[in-house]
Nucleic acid binder design. Sequence first.
RNA 1: AGGCCCGUAGUUCAAUUGGCAGAACGCCUGAUUCUGGUUCAGGAGGUUCCAGGUUCGAUUCCUGGCGGGCCUGCCA
Length: 587
Amino acid sequence: MSTESTHKMDFIREIVAEDIASGKHATIVTRFPPEPNGFLHIGHAKALCISFGVAQDVNAGRLGEGKATARTHLRMDDTNPVKEEKRYIDAIHADVKWLGFDWGEHEYYASDYFEQLVAWAELLIGAGKAYVDDQTGDEIRATRGTLTEPGKASPFRDRTPEENLDLFARMKAGEFADGSRVLRAKIDMAAPNMNLRDPVMYRVLHAVHPHAGDKWCVYPMYDYAHGQSDWIEGITHSLCSLEFEAHRPLYDWFVDAIMDAGGHPRLPAPGAPVTDELRKDRPRQIEFARLNLTYTVMSKRRLLALVNDKHVAGWDDPRMPTLSAMRRRGYPAEAIREFADGIGLSKRNQTIDLARLEFHVREHLNKSAERRMAVLDPLKVVITNYPDDTVEHMDAINNPEDEGAGTRKVPFSKVLYIEREDFMEDPPKKFFRLGPGREVRLRYAYFVTCTDVIKDAAGNIVELHCTYDPATKGGDAPDGRKVKGTLHWVSAAHALDAEVRLYDTLFTQENPDDVEEGKSWTDQINPDSLKTITAKVEPAMKTAKAGTTVQFERTGYFCVDPDTEDGPLIVNRTVTLKDSWGKQQGK
RNA sequence: AGGCCCGUAGUUCAAUUGGCAGAACGCCUGAUUCUGGUUCAGGAGGUUCCAGGUUCGAUUCCUGGCGGGCCUGCCA
């Protein structure tokens, strides 16, 4: 009995399980094929979790009852040098690793297959299934037809294989200018699927490639390169998003056409026949719905625009949905994986509530993040009956969810800061915090009672006077009396200043595309998505290293920003704590 | 308009392949709590897109509608 029955299944895992059960595959190979033209985002995390997750499930015996092994390749889908850059390749490596996936030695580049791809293209030309077209881009577009009308054949469609071979060789040799000629597959100009109306296989591009250098003047299109790259690597299940559904017939057409012409990546010897057995050795493309999140955009084009138009500080600005941004913001990789695994897999377009991602972030951080006290909006408090020069070091628990995290000392003295919103001069009954004559607990310290409210000439509250009860040291009253509220605080003399970056959603609408006539998604950008303040934090934060996330009690989780390395403490708010009081106030 | 794909709580997914429609997140209530956090207990929320048909019985099968998505780059 396998654990399969108890494990979460989806339509892709069912297909893989069947393919193992039927003996179709003894080795399952999946792949993650990013184009290095931007940074990976949370949508890629979903794809990563699916392709790596399927392989992990196979290896763990959860899929296919241990009758197969599996691996996952990382492949740069680098067929368009004008958009791709080395720095994106580096960022992809870092992000995939950070998320927790290991491709081992299986790192590949589509550009490493260009030689083979060209050889197969020549095979197709020889078989009369591809031709060089001298039409301009505009002409090709104009003759492609529409959704309801068939296209028109190119005047160059019936060139001889010899002529095509010669022309293609000269394209490769760099004899022709960019855009002057393309190699097209000869399929069907009347096909209802537009992708089959003689799609372009190669274009002339005199561009330096980030991986292949200046070796090539022709570059293959996605449709011609992707399926064949899968095939070369022995990918069994090529998992991609829904918009490639209409490309699947073409994906299969190229494989069939190459085999019909005598090609196969695993021919035992040059010129050997493509046997029925070899014919079964081919990849299968399966599509699933890509991830959308509320209050953000996910397309790389738009993310690039946000960066280029300076709406954010960069690809790793913590407001971005990129993995590098989430890392910088303090989202744990494990939370992102749990999120991705939990949202399900289907063919329906999905938009997930941001709240669901935040749930996983809080769930993980609640268990792992140490607690600290920090006052974001300081209000001075003087404990009038506390000795002037005394400092006490209070014991504070680092993480109530993790006993192993231990305790620390927090200095307490006569002058403190508390949160401005923790005091109300005329509080309603449900307000459990400080008010004139009210007693509250200062966490890990004493019960205090507010005796005086000091205001400036304009009537603004600038200071509070309180008395403390020495018998309540540590936070408990020996007489058993209770207080409704517990406040966080810092000692003014010991507090550190910290720059705190408070983030809100990058867009004001759940769906940034939901706009009135004449407006665009960029009009929905939230002008208050970043607020920078200076907070007072307890001295234990002095040693906090970049990348560590702590919980500031009662306010939220905060991650030390890498900018801290060369200056004062800077923290990013990862996510707020759930706030039933604030919610109640909001309505 | 032509082709392909998809319609189940607010959202994302289940429903042992024809047998009493469930879960998670979100929302609401209560208990607990030295974080208005956590934890625990409970609640609201469904014409399974619609209409026919087959069947003792349909979310599931059939037919026809309706709604949504994708496709007319020398992007991926």
